[in-house]
Amino acid sequence: MKLPPFEYRTPETVEETVELLGEFGDEAKILAGGQSLIPLLAMRLSRPAVVIDINNVNELNTISNGSGLSIGALTRHRTAERSALVQSSAPMLVAALGYVGHDAIRTRGTIGGSVAHADPAAELPTVLTALGGSVSATSARGTRSIAADDFFEGFLSTSLADDELLTAIQLPPRPDRSGWSFNEFSRRSGDFALVGVAVSIELDESGTVVDARIAMSGVAGEPTRAIEAETALRGNPAGPESFATAAAAAAAEINPSADLHGTTAYRKHLAGILVRKGLNEACDRAKGTR
């Protein structure tokens, strides 16, 4: 398990990086934290001609709060986890980061890398989807914002063009009376989840669900919104009855494939369990009782 040969480039600015991406396109792979790319290279499942290492692009290493939270692509998981700004603005992200691998993975792993790699079982794409976040994609042609719902396109696949660099993720501000939760079940501590569920819920003063976003990992090729569950919740009182209905709807609207670690029926069941649990927790947070 040794890496294949590749050309290695180390740009220091976004401009240089996108220039290289423009030159090499799909021949190139971006190396950020390396926690996914290096194993793929070692197993020779990925054969880029050029590896563009962005670890020296310091402008990508930022966390800022304007109209929502913006986290630069090169921000390490550990840095984000420990950031007071992230803790106060995006507690769901912090909770989810706690499930990402282990300390020695999170010290290197990056926010942008996790999102761009788009592993369907990974935590951050699910969080981004549940929070209705977006990514910034920069190329020589300019910068565009891509909503999470439009970004993830299938197994390890995104709508990022070959010449585009994911430079940051954005998470919108949290509305009043909103709550969040992140839960997942994995076979061992630190493993990718069999199923993960991120819930973002907004209530009105009477406790009726104004809006709910539920994103699931591990149930399809990309992070998956439980659209029918969300619809079932909207306009209904938050509570055991509507949560049970939503959980059943979430389990019913997915058709996860079976693998070594869990059957289709098991994953559907787990999704229902985690959605109900997640709705309870998110609702408690929205009501300030958690």
Binding site: G262, T263, A265, Y266, H269
Partner: peptide
């Protein structure tokens, strides 16, 4: 006895 099998045995799924 992975988790899926446990739930099958318990007739949960």
């Amino acid at each position: 006895l992975p988790p899926a099998k446990i739930l099958e045995l318990a007739k949960v799924i």
